[in-house]
Amino acid sequence: MPGETMETIFDMETVALDDEDSALLILDQTQLPGRREILRLKDQKSIWDAIYLLQVRGAPAIGVSAAFGIYLAAKEINETDFDAFYTKFEAARDYLDSARPTAVNLSWALRRMDGVVRANKEKPIEEIKKLLLREANEIKAEDIRVCRAIGENGLALLKPGMGLLTHCNAGQLATAKYGTATAPMYLGQERGYGFHVFCDETRPLLQGARLTAFELTQAGIDTTLICDNMAPSVMKQGWVDAVFVGCDRVAENGDTANKIGTSYVALAAKRFKIPFYVCAPTSTIDMSCKTGGDIHIELRSAEEVTEMWYEKRMAPEGVKVYNPAFDVTDAEFITAIITEHGVAYPPYDASLKEIFERKAKAEK
């Protein structure tokens, strides 16, 4: 209708809670960009499926979903004895935790919610449920603050007019707001920096093509979509001044797991002397994980490669398919890790420790 303003992705929440209806609301990312559908998830199997099937994805958004999801599970437990309540809570926690083993925010959020339960075991169960709701809401609010801070810290490393490249989707759709790797881009857009951004399509699930390119163009950012194997070519042309990616887990030594293909981009950036930045909330940094070799890499179904995006199968029947969801970029290829508490530079075992010390002081 004339005069109507069309709703954009920035008018919609990636993850939300309808407490009155006991439902987790998510924007179904498997339907984007063609269709915008909000799913109302009321049972643990549906929430588990949504995480596993990437209807909700991105480490921070998964963490927020897990927090709301385990709250809804607790809400349905009809026990007044703490031990009986906790046994069922623990089972629900472990079930949700099994959905995506690589994304550390999933287990981080569930551990945080579990800590609320154990710290308040002397209180009535109904009071514990209220505390869980408060904690889940805080996890979401905290994610927004964290992403904004990452954006400010990342933008400080950039100059107006730069060409940037990103892989996969570490944007608004992967978080509660702003994104991680895209946060400097959005803040730069607000301030007239005039960035030009190249988006890798990100095979096989096309998160860069379907999600990041969609987000950035809706925000008015000058955006060019490229196939994954074109990244070295645009770098060689001198069109890329910096690479920004998100991550699903950072090890103590700085090795980083992110969507498959990230390590290839890092290698190319190193060859062409382009800074390669990883944007990581401290919730995604796992100091108990010594190196990237300790990160479990999720393997996904062959159909994602052979037929998911095609009208008919595009590979011969019976061919073997290797489909890891993530790869590990070695710390030596990472220029810096940008967090909400500052920028960490090599050696990462020391600088990441310092980041957590800053975080502890800020939280006092």
Rank of each mutant, 00 (worst) to 15 (best):
T284Y: 11
E252R: 15
D83I: 00
E152Q: 13
P347S: 03
I51P: 03
E4L: 05
I38L: 13
R300P: 04
D49K: 14
I128R: 06
F89R: 04
D327F: 11
F198T: 04
A59C: 02
R36H: 15
I297R: 07
A344F: 08
T166G: 09
V240Y: 11
T223E: 10
S288W: 00
E363P: 01
E76V: 00
D248Q: 11
A269Y: 06
P160K: 13
A219G: 03
T166Q: 10
Y322G: 00
Q207G: 09
L165C: 09
D330K: 14
F10D: 11
H296T: 14
A59W: 08
T180G: 05
D248E: 15
E252W: 10
A103Q: 09
G58Q: 11
K177Q: 15
K88W: 01
G69T: 08
F68D: 03
V245L: 02
H167P: 03
L352S: 10
E138Y: 14
R35V: 08
I337H: 01
T306C: 02
A350N: 07
Y345I: 02
R100L: 01
F326M: 06
T335G: 02
V234E: 06
D94Q: 15
L211Q: 13
T339K: 05
R191F: 03
I226R: 13
L299C: 01
L267C: 04
D222W: 01
E135N: 04
D97T: 00
L17F: 09
T329D: 06
P101S: 12
L211W: 10
I274M: 04
A103H: 09
L53G: 03
W239Q: 11
H341P: 00
M235Y: 13
F82N: 00
N229A: 13
R36W: 13
I297Q: 08
A149D: 08
L187S: 02
G34S: 01
V319H: 09
E76N: 12
E303A: 12
I47T: 08
Y186A: 04
A156Q: 14
W239S: 06
A73L: 04
D21R: 15
F82I: 10
W239R: 15
I139L: 11
Y345R: 14
K312A: 11
K359Y: 12
K361T: 13
A23P: 03
L267T: 14
W48Y: 15
R111F: 05
M12H: 10
M1K: 12
A136G: 13
D228P: 07
D222I: 05
V104K: 14
L131H: 10
A74G: 15
Q172S: 05
T180I: 05
P346L: 04
F276W: 07
V265R: 02
M113Y: 09
I51K: 00
